[in-house]
């Protein structure tokens, strides 16, 4: 009797299996499709995505383009300004007359906090980009930590700057005119330039630093936290690099303008006052 059962039970199981899988006979006939390019392709999709799309792009650009773009900006932009300084030179304004109040105490405080954190962001960012020339290791690793801390500080100041200056930074029709004459910086003559409290160049810098800074913070956070799919991280790295390059170009411009192009203009961000003549020429439409 026992023997009969031991024969019947497996037989019943096989019968059951044949009935159960009758609708899908393939599983009984073959162990599955043979490996093919299609199978390998579907394996790829599971963990590396479509590498050829953004992976290759990121590899090509990070492997040479980005560092070259930054090198170009760090050399060509200062060279152009040096040429400008030699050929045209600094604008000098009389400090006679009643000075015009431009920047309140809080504005100046926020500006300098932003300036400090932004400078650190630029320096530590460049440390990562040109890391191989300073040997990498703990030095650049520390740079990365400082990059994160400064980004947190700058993100807060960028929000303040955005709302402090938003009204004065809205684009105006005369900004186009300012662009055409390049703000009068290409001539030595002191002719009134079409600009309100801020000129078109300052407005570009403002929008790039606040809104662009926000995008930098957003993409930087994802690169820091590795928060997202690999393809998304690749796009974020590309975005972070190109926007960073643009920011550094404008940062150098801002430095040149405040330190060299207009003699003594740095003082307005320290004392809060601009000389009357400077306002009349460079911010001719500002209502004093």
């Amino acid at each position: 009797m026992k023997r009969l059962y031991s024969f019947l039970l497996p037989a019943a199981m096989v019968l059951f299996a044949v009935i159960a899988f009758a609708g899908d006979p393939q599983i009984l006939l073959s162990p599955g499709p043979e490996p093919s390019t299609a199978t390998f392709g579907s394996i790829n999709k599971v963990f590396t995505g479509d590498w050829q799309q953004y992976g290759q792009l990121f590899t090509d650009w990070q492997g040479g383009l980005f560092s070259r773009v930054f090198l170009l900006i760090l050399t060509i932009v200062p060279a152009l300004f040096l040429l400008h300084f030699i050929l045209i030179g600094a604008k000098k304004f009389s400090h006679e007359g009643s000075p015009v109040f431009f920047f309140g105490l809080f504005t100046r405080f926020i500006h300098w906090l932003a300036a400090l954190s932004f400078s650190l962001l630029v320096i530590t960012g460049l440390m990562v980009i040109f890391g191989k020339f300073i040997g990498g290791g703990p030095l650049v690793m520390t740079g990365r930590s400082i990059h994160l801390l400064s980004a947190l500080v700058f993100a807060v100041t960028a929000v303040f700057m955005f709302f402090i200056w938003l009204k004065d930074m809205l684009p105006m029709p005369h900004d186009i005119l300012w662009m055409f004459i390049m703000g009068g910086y290409l001539s030595k003559k002191k002719k009134p330039v079409p600009a309100g409290k801020f000129n078109a160049g300052q407005k570009m810098w403002f929008w790039l630093a606040t809104v662009g800074g926000g995008v930098m913070a957003w993409s930087g956070y994802q690169l820091y936290a590795f928060d997202g799919m690999t393809d998304q991280l690749r796009l974020m790295a590309i975005l972070h690099n190109f926007l960073g390059a643009a920011l550094i170009a404008f940062f150098i411009t801002h430095l040149y303008m405040s330190l060299f192009a207009i003699k003594g203009s740095l003082g307005s961000m320290i004392t809060g006052y601009k000389p009357q003549e400077e306002v009349e020429i460079l911010h001719s439409r500002y209502k004093m």
Binding site: F47, T48, T59, Q62, G136, G137, L148, A237
Partner: peptide, 27 residues
């Protein structure tokens, strides 16, 4: 020499580079 920037992970077609966490600020 590695600074943990993670670029190798983004470039790798096989997802091979790995990063231990638990450093300062979770870096």
């Amino acid at each position: 020499t590695c600074i943990g920037c993670g670029y190798c992970f983004m470039a790798c077609p096989f997802g091979a580079p790995q990063f231990p966490s638990g450093q300062v600020f979770g870096a």
